[in-house]
């Protein structure tokens, strides 16, 4: 499918959050009306809702789409303009598919995400290989709007659908030795072209990790959808992490393995460039990356002649909720 993307979107076309929600409510109403066979007499649409606003769409198994359609309404509004769906799903860093920003959208279609299972291992009472269906069984999904701040100094605002990672970890019962959580992305060179490249700097699988208290923090989300749909492959289908106060590379995609460990796990970017990428990778305007100043960010979509430059906030604006996790820590040392 050819998705034509537009850049300088007129203000009138960017969906403010309340409008997106209103449209969604409308669509839900319309869908249930249609289900009752009343479609014909349902009120005519006030405006054409973009296709992606209908809930529970996208690829993936029926049960997942149904569960996403039933997710709780936006439980965390931000009051900031959402980055349009087209941009969220066409501008990605997902290095398994290439280093270009459009490589994931161009190449991730081939990825098989159903069936999917997640191995949970290490310091837990109930290790095992869990089919995705079991991971999600009985999980209450909710929609949350989060900022996403990339280490490359751009940012987006995205309505995710998912569940707190804490809910999953509690189920598998971490032992008293568990101090960290390590994650791994799928390795499947047949479907992930960059994993076949000889020039890759990354030692696959892509790895990420959190301290256990970070992992248990209520803001830490396991996402299965965005904009009311199942996750598009390029965004990390079918299951990804979202840690909104850290740089985007911490929010690992297409997760197949979760290991609870006693020691700080190895993480991909830190393994490659320890001076540039720390284990913590908390958003911090005071600590620059050698390549990018982190003092400000370009919030996408950004106009060309008047780029949408905004100051970056400590912990990406989530300081009130997460600063206590790092009390007494030297954030310039533990970057």
């Amino acid at each position: 499918m050819l998705i034509k993307t537009r850049t300088d979107i007129p203000a009138s076309e960017i969906t403010p959050e309340p409008v997106y929600r209103a449209r969604r409510d409308f669509m839900r109403g319309a869908m249930s009306a249609a289900a009752l066979g009343l479609g014909a007499i349902a009120a005519p649409p006030l405006f054409a809702a973009p296709a992606h606003v209908a809930r529970g769409e996208g690829r993936g198994p029926d049960w997942l789409r149904a569960q996403i359609a039933a997710a709780d309404e936006n439980t965390r509004a931000l009051g900031e303009t959402l980055t349009p769906f087209e941009h969220v799903t066409s501008y990605n860093n997902f290095y398994e598919f290439g280093q270009g920003k459009t490589d994931p959208a161009d190449k991730a279609d081939a990825l098989t995400t159903d069936p999917w299972s997640v191995e949970i291992a290490g310091e837990v009472a109930k290790p095992g290989v869990y089919p995705l269906e079991d991971v999600l069984k009985g999980m209450d999904l909710e929609e949350r709007v989060y900022r996403l701040r990339c280490v490359e100094a751009w940012s987006m605002v995205i309505p995710w659908i998912g569940f707190p990672l804490a809910a999953l970890l509690q189920r598998v019962e971490p032992t008293s030795k568990a101090k960290y959580v390590a994650f791994e992305t799928l390795v499947r060179p047949a479907e992930m072209p960059a994993q076949r490249s000889r020039f890759s700097t990354i030692d696959w699988p892509y790895r990420e990790g959190l301290r256990l208290d970070e992992a248990m923090h209520p803001l830490t989300l396991m996402a299965v959808g965005l904009y009311g749909k199942t996750l598009p492959n390029q965004n990390g289908a079918p299951l990804r992490l979202v840690v909104p106060w850290k740089y985007g590379f911490k929010s690992i995609k297409s997760i197949v393995k979760i290991v609870l460990t006693e020691r700080e796990p190895k993480t991909t970017w830190n393994m490659m460039q320890p001076r540039e990428y720390g284990f913590y990778a908390n958003v911090n305007p005071e600590v620059d990356h050698p390549r990018w100043s982190q003092a400000s960010e370009r919030r996408l979509p950004s106009g060309l002649f008047r780029p949408n430059i905004i100051p970056t906030r400590l912990f990406n604006g989530y300081a009130e909720e997460v600063a206590h996790l790092y009390k007494g820590m030297d954030l310039t040392r533990y970057y």
């Binding site: 993307t5 300088d8 987006m156």
Partner: peptide
């Protein structure tokens, strides 16, 4: 408008 989300970088 064919340059996607971040025409500046492109």
């Amino acid at each position: 408008h064919q340059l996607g989300a971040d025409p500046a970088q492109t």
